[in-house]
């Protein structure tokens, strides 16, 4: 079976200014994104992540290289029919209601007329936007905009969902909700490509990651493989006294092991925040 996205030797140059100075945004990038996984594309601002996604979607032309989506050449209608896209900081027509927007996108995506109603309700339900669906989009908060953006991206049940900074500007509760939506999509066997620089979230939801810098790929692999340090171990011990610690260190030393640091485990500020404000949704 072909990859969800296959990028081979992709290069993109932008011409800037009257003299047409060349700015290389993506430099000989090659990627194979497997199907059915959550794939994180990481990197600092301006590293070429969004440009790469735009090229994949056919919104920007490549200077060189080959790209295919689900076995189809990129930028073809057949490829886009099976792809959903949530752009960074999405903006939608403010006068439409959430339900009208999702219906509009379903129709543009080729959902059959007799299935549109059910597809819209499914997408709104997945994005937890059913209650607010009849409000004009102009009244939505940032988090709700992202969620309705997610709904429009998945309304046609795509095999591949591309999310560009889906949690940018969203509070931790909304961010966690988007994380849950991503997991739900993965459980349905969809491929999700997540472009973000919020590393904590990417670590939680992604199966594989690629890190880009200055248009080049600097690292690619499964999250566990990339992050694990096989020469180090962590033990969490309850009720440890100084005497117990000395004894443990002596026992480990007898086997040639050395304790390099002993600290108290701490939860993340995000976990604490979510624990304290559980249930407060931005509806």
């Amino acid at each position: 079976m072909s990859s969800a996205i296959s990028v081979r030797h992709l290069t993109k140059d932008f011409r800037i200014g009257i003299r047409g100075l060349k700015l290389r945004a993506v430099d000989d990038l090659s990627l194979e994104i497997p199907r059915g996984q959550v794939y994180g594309l990481l990197g600092p601002n301006g590293c070429g992540k969004s440009t790469t996604l735009k090229i994949v979607l056919g919104l920007v032309s490549a200077t060189a290289g080959e790209i295919s989506i689900l076995g189809h050449p990129s930028a073809t209608s057949a490829a886009r029919r099976r792809t959903g896209f949530l752009p960074e900081a999405p903006y939608f027509h403010k006068f439409l209601t959430g339900r009208e927007l999702v219906r509009y996108c379903a129709q543009l995506s080729g959902v059959a007329a007799d299935s549109v109603g059910a597809a819209v309700e499914d997408a709104l339900g997945l994005a937890a936007m059913t209650e607010a669906a009849d409000r004009p989009i102009g009244t939505y908060s940032k988090g709700m905009l992202q969620r309705i953006g997610f709904a429009q991206a998945v309304v046609h049940d795509p095999e591949l969902v591309i999310l560009d900074e889906p949690t940018a500007g969203v509070d931790p509760v909304g961010s966690a909700a988007i994380g849950r939506m991503i997991h739900t999509m993965r459980d349905k066997g969809k491929t999700i490509v997540l472009c973000s620089h919020l590393l904590g979230q990417v670590e939680q939801v992604c199966d594989r990651v690629a890190i880009m810098d200055r248009g080049k790929l600097v690292l690619e692999g499964a999250v566990d493989d990339v992050l694990a340090r096989r020469d180090r171990h962590v033990m969490t011990v309850e009720a440890m006294t100084p005497a117990a610690r000395d004894a443990a260190e002596a026992a480990l030393a007898a086997h040639g092991a050395k304790v390099t640091s002993v600290t108290h485990p701490r939860r993340s500020l995000e976990d604490l925040f979510r624990e304290l404000v559980t249930g407060s949704r931005d509806a």
Binding site: L59, A78, P87, L108
Partner: peptide
């Protein structure tokens, strides 16, 4: 300018 075209043109719309 509002980038709604990004959302629309990423769909099977020529």
């Amino acid at each position: 300018d509002n980038k709604t075209a990004l959302t629309l043109l990423a769909k099977p719309l020529s």
